[in-house]
Simulated scan of single mutants.
Amino acid sequence: MHPILKTDRLSHKYSSAWAIRDINLEIERTGIVGLLGSNGAGKSTTMNIICGTLNQTEGSVLINGTDLRQEPEAAKREIGFLPQNPPLYTDLTTDEYLVYCAELRLMEKTRIRSAVDEAKERCGITNVSNRLIRNLSGGYRQRIGIAQAIVHRPKLVVMDEPTNGLDPNQLIEARKLIREVAQEHAVLLSSHILSEIQVLCKEIVMIESGRIVFADSMDAFNNYVQTNSILLRLENPPASVELLRIKGITGVEFLTATQIRLRFEGDQDVMERLVAASVEHGWRLREIGLDKGLLDDTFKQLSSKSHQ
C-alpha cells in the first residue's frame, strides 16, 4: 500500500531565496492533518506544489505512489483542492458548476451525474441544485467549494484556510462537513490559527521559515507546549477574590466582563474544581480550556528548540 501523500526533501526557491526547504510529509490514511504556520512561513508554497500548480525546485511529491511531476494527469485525478477563495463561477447554477468541475477532472461521462448527486448530498446542497451561485450565501458557497473538491472522489483533499471569514453558525457547519469528508478522504488542512487546527486535526505539521519545526499528533503537541493558564467564560462571574479561593488558582485577569484568564499552579485538576465551583455558586460556565498563548510565541518556542 502506498501512502496517500508523500513528499521527499521538497524545496522551492523564489529568485535567490528558499521559500521552503526539505519538507518531508507522509499521510497514510484518512483523517485530517493540519498544516500550521504563520503568514509567510511556506504553507501556500507547499500546498501549491502538492496540488501541482507550482513546480518544485528540488524533491518529489508522490500521490498514492504516482510521481506528480512525471505523471501529472494521473496524480491530479487523486487530488481535490479547495483554495482560500473557492473558484466559483457565479453565473452558473450549482449543478452546472459541479458538472463542469467533474469534466475538468476528466471523469467518465457516464459517472458524472451520479458523482455530482453524491457530492451535493454529502455537502448538503441538493436543495440549491438549480440556483445561481451568485445568489447563494457565503455558507452555501463554501459548501459548493468543498463539493467541487470531492466530486471526482479523490484520495487526497487539500484545503487552504477553509473556515476563514465564516460567521459562527457557518463555522460550525463547515467544521462538521470537513470531519465528514475526512471519513472517506485524507485531508490536508492549512491554517494560521492554532485553535482551528486544535479543534479539527488529530495530527499537526508546523512550518516556520520554510522548514518543519514540529510534526506529531495533536496530543503530543498539547503536551509539548506547556501552559499554566486557563481561559474561561462565565455568564455570571464572581469577584476575583472568589476565584482566588479555589485551590491552585494564583492569578485572575478579566479580559472582558465575562471572559477570564486564570493562572494556576500544579496539575490540570484545577479545571474540575472550577467546573464544580461554577455549578455550586451559579456562575453559569459557558467555556473553559487551557490557554495555549499566542501562536507567535508557540512558533518561537518550537523554532528555538528545533535549532538547539
Results as ranks from 00 to 15, higher is better:
residue 261 R to A: 00
residue 262 L to G: 05
residue 262 L to T: 04
residue 263 R to P: 03
residue 264 F to S: 05
residue 265 E to N: 08
residue 265 E to S: 14
residue 265 E to T: 11
residue 265 E to Y: 09
residue 266 G to T: 00
residue 266 G to S: 04
residue 267 D to L: 02
residue 267 D to F: 11
residue 267 D to E: 14
residue 267 D to V: 13
residue 268 Q to W: 08
residue 268 Q to E: 09
residue 269 D to C: 12
residue 269 D to S: 15
residue 269 D to K: 07
residue 269 D to G: 15
residue 269 D to H: 12
residue 270 V to I: 10
residue 270 V to R: 05
residue 271 M to L: 12
residue 271 M to I: 14
residue 272 E to N: 13
residue 272 E to F: 15
residue 273 R to M: 08
residue 273 R to V: 02
residue 274 L to V: 05
residue 274 L to F: 01
residue 275 V to C: 15
residue 275 V to R: 15
residue 275 V to G: 09
residue 277 A to V: 09
residue 277 A to S: 06
residue 277 A to P: 12
residue 277 A to H: 14
residue 278 S to P: 12
residue 278 S to V: 13
residue 278 S to L: 00
residue 278 S to F: 00
residue 278 S to I: 05
residue 278 S to K: 01
residue 278 S to M: 05
residue 278 S to D: 00
residue 279 V to L: 03
residue 279 V to N: 07
residue 279 V to T: 15
residue 279 V to Y: 02
residue 280 E to H: 08
residue 280 E to R: 04
residue 280 E to I: 07
residue 280 E to N: 02
residue 280 E to D: 08
residue 281 H to N: 04
residue 282 G to V: 05
residue 282 G to W: 00
residue 283 W to Y: 02
residue 284 R to N: 07
residue 284 R to W: 09
residue 284 R to G: 02
residue 285 L to R: 10
residue 285 L to H: 11
residue 285 L to V: 06
residue 286 R to L: 07
residue 286 R to M: 07
residue 287 E to G: 02
residue 287 E to Y: 04
residue 288 I to N: 02
residue 288 I to T: 02
residue 288 I to P: 00
residue 288 I to A: 07
residue 288 I to Y: 04
residue 288 I to C: 00
residue 289 G to C: 09
residue 289 G to L: 04
residue 289 G to A: 00
residue 289 G to F: 00
residue 290 L to I: 06
residue 290 L to M: 09
residue 291 D to A: 04
residue 291 D to C: 03
residue 292 K to E: 14
residue 292 K to I: 13
residue 292 K to P: 03
residue 292 K to R: 10
residue 292 K to F: 15
residue 293 G to M: 07
residue 293 G to R: 04
residue 293 G to P: 01
residue 293 G to H: 12
residue 294 L to N: 11
residue 294 L to M: 14
residue 294 L to P: 07
residue 294 L to F: 13
residue 295 L to P: 14
residue 295 L to I: 15
residue 295 L to E: 12
residue 295 L to C: 11
residue 296 D to E: 08
residue 296 D to V: 11
residue 297 D to H: 06
residue 297 D to P: 01
residue 297 D to Q: 03
residue 297 D to T: 13
residue 297 D to S: 03
residue 297 D to L: 12
residue 298 T to V: 15
residue 298 T to H: 13
residue 298 T to A: 15
residue 299 F to I: 08
residue 299 F to L: 10
residue 299 F to E: 01
residue 299 F to N: 05
residue 299 F to G: 08
residue 300 K to H: 11
residue 300 K to L: 04
residue 300 K to F: 08
residue 300 K to P: 01
residue 301 Q to T: 08
residue 301 Q to I: 01
residue 301 Q to L: 04
residue 301 Q to P: 01
residue 301 Q to H: 10
residue 301 Q to K: 06
residue 302 L to Q: 05
residue 302 L to F: 09
residue 302 L to N: 07
residue 303 S to H: 03
residue 303 S to V: 09
residue 303 S to M: 02
residue 304 S to K: 12
residue 304 S to M: 11
residue 305 K to H: 12
residue 305 K to D: 06
residue 305 K to C: 12
residue 306 S to C: 13
residue 306 S to D: 11
residue 306 S to T: 07
